[in-house]
Design a protein around this nucleic acid. Structure first.
Lengths: 137, 137
DNA sequence: GTCTATGCAAAGCTTTTGCAGGAGA
DNA sequence: TCTCCTGCAAAAGCTTTGCATAGAC
């Protein structure tokens, strides 16, 4: 089920993350399935093949990957986080009906107002919500 | 403490919201103080003058105002919501150190990719996080 | 053998729900 | 009187913490 185990191992190593099996699987899942899952979805999917997996470990792993800038946590006015492997910049469209989050290619450059000069931008997110074309019929 | 009680009463009436004292005060607080407070901050501030206020009522009121499109709930990778009175479109910059959220004037227009044609956009948010110039020294 | 990863159970927090009392029309 | 606003208490749901065990080097 792991697309390119070697490749992912290298990515983790580069960030000083020991490539344990679970870490590889979590990152692989986010890397392949671009579905912006919540913790529970990740947990349930991986549990099928890793029966001993615990949700705590999923949380731990996601925190680690997020701290190392391999994964982004996003929250679109919900009480739960969604996760994705970081790739190039893009925005997100969340359908309020089916709860799917779609990627939107876009220019994420932003110019801060001059009174905020000297600020450091670490992360940028463009979030759009509404009803997707599949549900809007 | 209420800037323009009559004005706010009119705004609420226009949206079919009965202008109870608490509703006026909650909306007035968001309308004047552009600090993007969380529920607890709203609750504590208003409690000083409304000692019997309960947090449930703050939640109820915010939900009502949000449903009626007078207030926007935003969440920048946190476990708690922040609220603001809806004005013209703008983005938000959240300082990870002092937790302040600043408004950023910007063009919020966005073009959906063609495979998403037919979708309806209800809401758009541009969220940037990092360290503000006050903390970044 | 030591250090780190994993996982269970419990705690912590924000938000929601159920329901009863109270205010306003 | 009748509606619905308010608020207490409890529940719910996501996430974090503490600690013990398992596993890797």
């Amino acid at each position: 089920m792991i697309a390119k185990q070697k490749e992912i191992t290298d990515i983790l190593n580069k960030r000083d993350i020991r490539p344990s099996y679970i870490r590889i699987r979590v990152y692989d899942y986010l890397y392949r399935d671009k579905v912006h899952p919540n913790v529970d979805t990740i947990y349930k999917n991986l549990s099928e093949e890793i029966p001993t997996l615990s949700k705590t470990t999923v949380y731990n792993t996601l925190k680690l990957l997020t701290d190392k800038d391999l994964v982004r946590a996003i929250n679109i006015n919900d009480n739960e986080m969604r996760y994705e492997a970081i790739r190039n910049d893009h925005g997100h469209f969340k359908c309020d009906k089916c709860k799917t989050i779609y990627d939107i290619p876009m220019d994420m450059n932003i110019k801060l107002p001059k009174e905020m000069k000297g600020s450091r931008i670490d992360e940028r997110q463009f979030l759009v919500s509404g009803v997707c074309n599949n549900c809007n019929q």
